[in-house]
Every structure is written in C-alpha cells, then in structure tokens.
Amino acid sequence: MSSDFTFIWVAVGALFDPITIAYALAALGLALHFGFTGLLNFGQAGFMTIGGYAFAIGAVKLNVGFFPSLLMAIAGAVLFALLLGIPTLRLRADYLSIVTIGAAEIVRLSVRTPEARPLTGGSDGLNGTGASFFALNPIPDTFSINLGPIHYTNDMVWVRLVGWITVIVAALIIWLLVRSPWGRVIKGIREDEDAVRALGKNAFSYKMQVLIIGGVLAGIGVIFAIMPSSLQPDNYGTQTTFFIWAIMLLGGAATIFGPIVGSMIFWATIAITEGFVSLGVKTGVLPITPVQSGQIRYMLVGLALMLLVIFRPQGIFGKKAEARFNG
C-alpha cells in the first residue's frame, strides 16, 4: 500500500524540482512581458531553447566551463530578443505574438535537424551539460537527503540550491524594477502605449528592454533543468509555452510571487493527478488503459485551469480589482 502513495513524495519533490525552477523563471519573465507590459509573447519556449543550446554547446562542445557557458546563454537570449523585437515591437501587440510563436518553432526545428547534429545533437539533444557546474559543488559526496522514498544526492541538492537562489535574486530584481518609475512606464505601456508616447517616453525602447530581460530569465532558467538530465529539443515546443502561460495566469499575471508559486503548484499538481490516475487504473477504479491515463491528467489540469479562470481570474496572488476593471 505504502508504495502506491509514493507519488505524494514525488509531488513534494516536484515543488523544488529543477524543472519547477526553469518554469518559475520563464513564467517570471513572461509576467514581466505580459502581466506588467502587455507584450503578447507566445515564444517563451524559444527563449528556453536558445538559452539551453547556447549553454549546452558552450559546456559540452566548446568546453569553456560553467560561467562562460552561462554568459553564452544570456547573450543568446538577448540576441533572440533583439531579432524578434526590432521588427515587431513598433507594430501592434498581436504581431509580436505571431512572430514569437513562429520563431520559437523555427528555433526548435532548426536545432533538431540532422544537419545540425555535430553541434546540437539533432533530435537526441545534448547530454552531460552539467559536468562543469557539478565540479563546482562544495557539498561533500557523503551528504544526502532522503525525502520519503526519494534519495537526493549532493549534486541534486546543489542544483536545487543554486537554482532557487537564482529565482530569489531574479524575483528581487523584477520587484525592484516594477515598483520604480521604470515600472510605472511599462505598466503605462500595458494600459495604452500611445498615451505613454504622448508623455515623452520612448515606448519602443522600454518594450525592447522588457523583452530582453524576460527572455534572459527563460534562457537562464532552462539551464537548471538540463544540467541534471539532458537537453531535448522536443521538450521546448509550443506546449511548453502554453504551460508557462498557464503557470503565470495561475499565480497572477502582474505579480512577482505568482509565477514562482504557480510553477510549484503546477508541477506538484501534475505529479499528484498522475499518481491518482495511475492508482485508479491499477486498482481498476478507472476503466482506462495506462496509455490513456497520461492524457487524462492533462485534461484534469485543463479543468483546474478553467475553474481558476472562472472563479479567480486574477490568479492566486493577483488583485481582485484589476480583474474587475479588466472585465
């Protein structure tokens, strides 16, 4: 019996998982894009792909070590933001959404082509990207933590520790930014760009800064997800972008803690629903096959999101008044 309920430990583990870290940072970046500035970025997965591959190529192919690889990821995300932003940010908001969703797919399909295999590993992706990062680990090999049946090695603790410190630093930076006069300008752009331009602010420049900062967060975050496992191009398709949107809306679009807590709840919920569904299948309560159960859990997540949007449209941390005036 006890082994059937290990999924509860898996769900608790998911709260702090490197995947959760990656999505928290990507969703925080998206909150800056959409929640605070009104930019419709549907290509956050593209920023993750760019950041992930720039880092992985630096770490595995060029062997330049952790920090130079990190810088490559940041530079990659900045370049991608400039490439997307320069032609689209002067246009109406919807153009950015079309371009970003397309560009993210172009990036994913480009890195997984067989021709790019020597550099990107093609559809197999890249492994062992975390070697230089784990070499920096000051936690001794003998150290480990047991969470129920799950065993965390010193490297697993190390990546989570650095990852969450990064999340906290990023949240602090975004918090400082949005409560400053700079933040007032970007919120003004969200409400009405022309009004802000009429007050003498260079709206294009602010939108570009926002696109870069939010994209870099996604590009850095993904590193924590790929270092302990591997970089797979198909993990960063449009579904990823929509998960990030779901996480951001779940927590509250124009909030700092929303995307972070949203990511934790999202991944824990996925683990719990998966556990319950497979338990139901095993005991015969649910008349479905194990293959179908994989789809069922996403339906349950979808249902949960619908209920959230209906009953708490501002998200968990959002202000109720904002949703009222929006509707």
């Binding site: 006069p181 007032r184 300008v185 919120k187 003004g188 969200r190 409400e191 009405d192 022309d194 009004a195 802000v196 009429a198 007050l199 602010k201 904002e322 005036f325 929006n326």
Partner: peptide, 14 residues
C-alpha cells in the same frame, strides 16, 4: 487615454 489600471496618482507621475 487614461491608464485604467494605474492609480490616478501614478497616471500623474508618469
């Protein structure tokens, strides 16, 4: 073009 979800004071400061 009042900026709806900014406070009146923030509108002014902008």
């Amino acid at each position: 073009k009042s900026l709806a979800l900014l406070s009146v004071l923030d509108n002014m400061k902008l």
